[in-house]
Simulated scan of single mutants.
Amino acid sequence: MGIRHASADDLASVGFAVLRSALATNILWIGALKFKQYEVENDEPLITSNPLFSALRKKLGAQKLNRLIGVTEITVGSLIAAKPFAPKASAVGSFGAAGLFLTTLSFLATAPGTRQGGQGMYSLSLLGQFLLKDTVLLGAALLTTADSLRVARHR
Rank of each mutant, 00 (worst) to 15 (best):
L19D: 01
V18F: 08
V14A: 08
G31T: 12
Q37F: 09
L19F: 01
L23S: 07
I27W: 06
A32L: 11
Y38H: 11
G15S: 01
A32V: 12
F35E: 10
A17N: 11
R20G: 00
R20C: 00
F35D: 03
E39G: 03
F35C: 04
L28N: 10
R20V: 00
I27Y: 05
V18H: 03
Y38P: 15
L28M: 09
V14E: 10
V18D: 00
L23D: 05
N42C: 00
E41S: 06
Q37K: 14
V40Q: 15
Q37V: 12
L28H: 09
G15P: 01
V18T: 04
D43K: 09
I27D: 05
E44W: 07
A24H: 03
W29R: 15
F16L: 06
F16A: 02
A32N: 02
E44M: 09
V14T: 11
A24I: 03
L33S: 10
V40T: 15
F16C: 05
Q37G: 11
D43S: 14
K34R: 03
L33P: 02
I30T: 15
N26S: 07
E39M: 14
L19R: 04
G15Y: 00
L23I: 03
V40Y: 11
F35N: 07
A32M: 07
N42S: 07
W29M: 09
N26W: 13
G31D: 10
R20T: 04
G31I: 14
W29Y: 14
A17C: 05
N26A: 05
P45T: 02
E41C: 02
K36D: 08
G31Y: 08
R20D: 03
T25C: 10
N42W: 10
G31S: 14
G31F: 12
G15N: 02
E44G: 01
N26T: 12
K34C: 10
K34S: 05
L33H: 13
A32Q: 03
V14Y: 12
F16Y: 08
L23Q: 10
L23T: 12
E44C: 01
L19A: 03
V14W: 15
L33Q: 12
V18P: 02
W29L: 08
G15F: 00
F35M: 05
P45V: 00
A17V: 03
I30A: 14
I27K: 09
S21F: 08
E44D: 10
A17Q: 09
E39W: 14
T25N: 07
A32Y: 05
W29V: 13
A24S: 06
L33F: 14
L28K: 08
E39I: 08
L19S: 01
I27H: 09
R20Y: 02
V18E: 02
K34I: 08
L23Y: 10
N42E: 13
P45W: 01
